[in-house]
Design a protein around this nucleic acid. Structure first.
Ligand SMILES: [Mn+2]
Ligand SMILES: [Mn+2]
Ligand SMILES: [Mn+2]
Ligand SMILES: [Mn+2]
Lengths: 220, 220
DNA sequence: TAGAATATTTAGATTGATCTAAAAATAATT
DNA sequence: AATTATTTTTAGATCAATCTAAATATTCTA
């Protein structure tokens, strides 16, 4: 059994290793979780003892099979709650993350399975992130950062990499949302910004950082 | 701001003082919360410093105005979540309390107001307990333990005093539920047990303890 | 009302989670 | 390769929440 804090560490480590990184470093964790490296060093030794990560001194950590299972359970809960908040309690997509950070730690297998059924077994959360099923299986769709599209190519917005209110509210202003069609009008080499069409309306400029955090499914 | 543990202490103290008791004793709290008196002694000094209770050494504690407000917020959340679980996630009334004990600590004013609206501003929880409104106002209906009814008198079950699975499952077996009509057929002086009719079906025997924990609204 | 029983508080320890400061290891750079 | 810079770990403290054992108050009872 993991404590709330341990669950947060584990989830963070899992997310950091999603990018393909083999070993996750102490500093990376400290950064992500807003703690000091000394605290992380302590905690990862505890998590190693609990068998959810493998820790080798000075070499960072790696999530074990058992650890991944636990991490995915937390992530499943987080995302299901986000769906609930948006679909049934009229939350907007920039309001849900913080609350879901709390709800993800509620311990009740019955609750989460009933919630899943109530929601109709959703496949993605309000940010387009896939929801693991009860066994921890994720079906990820092929997506790429909007940044990578070339002039003239088109796609549909499927997810966002960043779930911060600041970013999501910016997208709202741009008129961008999950499912919107986008087309690249122009790319600017100087700063990697681009001009795009969203749903065939007026062209808008987006910065490199924005384009990096929008995930699209390319379409012909 | 109160910690999860502090919220639990405060809620417990509030409930213990509901019965009219002026001062709540250290031992009573320790009992209710399953801790040692020494731990309680420590905690009530902290809660006193935070201004939610008044503590006088060796004389027990009393909830302050501010404390009552905080306690009622937690109770409101607890009961709203119980309604949600029963009405929307198909939980039975004996399964909700434990989960609600966790959910009641989620901190988000928006969430709880949205949940309240989603549920249609319910007035009572699945055990018949009144739900405080956003301002902490409770409208309690006139109720008395079934034990107090005399032979021949009738009433409607409005609430249960005990929310333990054991008790509620027993009521299920008896066919008792909120809203059921009851009529006292016979009372036994020897052990204070009674024979009652539930919804005019076959008479059933209930013990003194059962009769004490069923709250009815008497009717002519 | 004195002594016994009970309730409450204090003292001192422990555990989880965090921090700062210092030490040790690894990585980068002349 | 030697030195410097960076990263990571350890040592020692602190705070919340708990415990056991001992000390102190209050309450009951004879
Ligand atoms: Mn989120
Ligand atoms: Mn999300
Ligand atoms: Mn309850
Ligand atoms: Mn209840």
């Amino acid at each position: 059994m993991l404590s709330l804090v341990e669950e947060n560490y584990l989830k963070t480590i899992y997310h950091l290793s999603e990018g393909g990184r083999e070993q996750v470093s102490t500093n990376a964790i400290a950064d992500a979780i807003n703690t000091k490296p000394a605290s992380v060093s302590d905690m990862i030794q505890r998590l190693d003892r609990k068998g959810v990560i493998n820790y080798t001194k000075y070499q960072g950590v790696k999530v074990t099979g058992e650890g991944q299972e636990a991490a995915l359970k937390v992530i499943r809960k987080h995302r299901l709650w986000e769906v609930f908040l948006v679909e049934h309690l009229n939350f907007s997509w920039d309001e849900v993350h913080e609350v879901a950070e709390q709800l993800e730690h509620i311990k009740s297998p019955l609750l989460i399975e009933r919630l899943d059924a109530f929601l109709g077994h959703p496949k993605v959360d309000p940010h387009g992130d896939p929801i693991p099923d009860a066994k921890g299986v994720i079906r990820a769709k092929p997506q790429q950062p909007l940044q990578q599209l070339t002039v003239g190519s088109q796609g549909v917005i499927r997810a966002v990499k960043d779930s911060s209110p600041a970013f999501l509210q910016h997208l709202d202003k741009l008129g961008a949302y999950l499912g919107a069609r986008v087309k690249v009008i122009e790319t600017v080499d100087f700063d990697n910004s681009m001009q795009i069409l969203i749903d065939r309306t007026t062209p808008v400029f987006i910065s490199n950082q924005v384009a990096e955090n929008i995930l699209v499914e390319e379409s012909e």
